[in-house]
């Protein structure tokens, strides 16, 4: 197992290099970093521009340029952002922390309720409860997050304030303007609406996964064997049903990080929540190459990491899979 993990980690290095090269290419073509620099800093001297090109590896030759960028990236010589010359790492670190908080909260809430809803639906397939859960989930996945964000904001923030004098949930940021220090309650209040919006998507998706997975399992022969043993329905469900039904669900969950991050990006933007999504959209809009590349590296690395976690958890849950 350990050897497998080490080998997978070793393999992820070339993958990371290849993908970051593709990202580098895409950003060079798509955002034209040098032009963006000149646009943001119209009075920059020739020497300044050359310095910007050198440190970011923006040579006319893409391959040479990539390796130059890579060398500077690894040795920690990161260029400051083109707008306001900010240090990149502190900004990226804060964004990561904020997104991790929102993402974890939404994922935990979402997967917990999603799995429960899926199990409840699968227990009596075709029953009234099943139809209700399944239809709600279907509606849930059909509504894009920015639409639910707009509607919930309108209801809970704007109109709540008109009707009751105070909005139920704030609509932007982590803390109110001018607040300093840590305040858990205030933070939860600010995080509530974005968490709900991301969680709705996750609940809808996972209740459907869990339902169909558990239904497959419920019809299998070993469930009949379990029933023929005369053990309680609860034990049959938990020990024989859930354990098998979770195998495909867990694998999908770990591979689904991309789409969860996607939901986060949209939601963060709407709520002006200072995480990875807002960071990306701002720097992408500015064509801010020094901010964008490290962001991409973080995203690619986390996708690879979660892929590995998916495989490991798969093998851990299913004894038929041996990692070699």
């Amino acid at each position: 197992m350990l050897r497998y993990i080490l080998r997978r980690l070793a393999w992820s290095v070339p993958t990371l290099l290849l993908v970051t090269f593709l990202v580098y290419l895409a950003l060079r073509i798509g955002t034209d970093p040098v032009e963006s620099y000149k646009r943001v800093n119209p009075r920059a001297s020739r020497a300044k521009i050359q310095q910007y090109i050198d440190i970011n590896g923006l040579d006319p030759n893409f391959v040479q340029g990539y390796f130059k960028w890579l060398k500077n990236f690894i040795t920690g010589e990161w260029a400051p952002s083109i707008k306001g010359r900010r240090e990149v790492w502190p900004a990226l670190k804060d964004a990561m922390a904020n997104t991790l908080r929102l993402g974890t909260a939404a994922t935990v809430v979402g997967i917990f309720f999603g799995l429960i809803a899926g199990v409840l639906a699968a227990l009596r397939p075709g029953g009234r409860r099943d139809v209700f859960i399944n239809t709600s989930a279907f509606v849930g996945i059909s509504i894009p997050p920015f639409i639910s964000a707009i509607l919930l904001q309108l209801l809970f923030a704007v109109y709540w304030q008109r009707w009751f004098g105070e909005s139920l949930f704030p609509t932007s940021g982590v803390y109110p303007a001018g607040h300093s220090g840590f305040d858990l309650f205030l933070m939860l209040k600010f995080m509530a609406l974005p968490t709900i919006i991301v969680a709705i998507q996750i609940i809808a998706t996972y209740s459907r996964y869990m339902r169909s997975s558990l239904l497959d399992v419920m019809n299998s022969d070993y469930m009949r064997t379990a029933r023929s043993k005369g053990i309680s329905e609860r034990r049959i469900l938990i020990k024989h049903g859930m354990r098998n039904a979770l195998i495909p669900v867990v694998t999908i969950a770990a591979l689904d990080v991309g789409s969860i991050v996607g939901g986060l990006i949209i939601t963060e933007n709407i709520f002006a929540y200072p995480g990875m999504g807002l960071y990306f959209l701002k720097s992408f809009g500015d064509g801010d190459f020094p901010l964008l590349m490290p962001w991409m590296v973080v995203i690619v690395a986390s996708i690879l990491l979660f892929n590995l976690i998916a495989d490991i958890s798969y093998a851990w849950l299913d004894p038929r899979i041996r990692l070699e």
Binding site: A26, I29, G30, G258, S259, G262, I265, I266, I303, N307
Partner: peptide, 22 residues
């Protein structure tokens, strides 16, 4: 696999710009 693993909006925006940049 690569395209589907990335967050949708990110890929969409980057590919959009690349298309426009060629």
């Amino acid at each position: 696999d690569l395209f589907l693993a990335f967050p949708f909006l990110v890929t969409l925006l980057v590919v959009r710009n690349v298309l426009g940049g060629l």
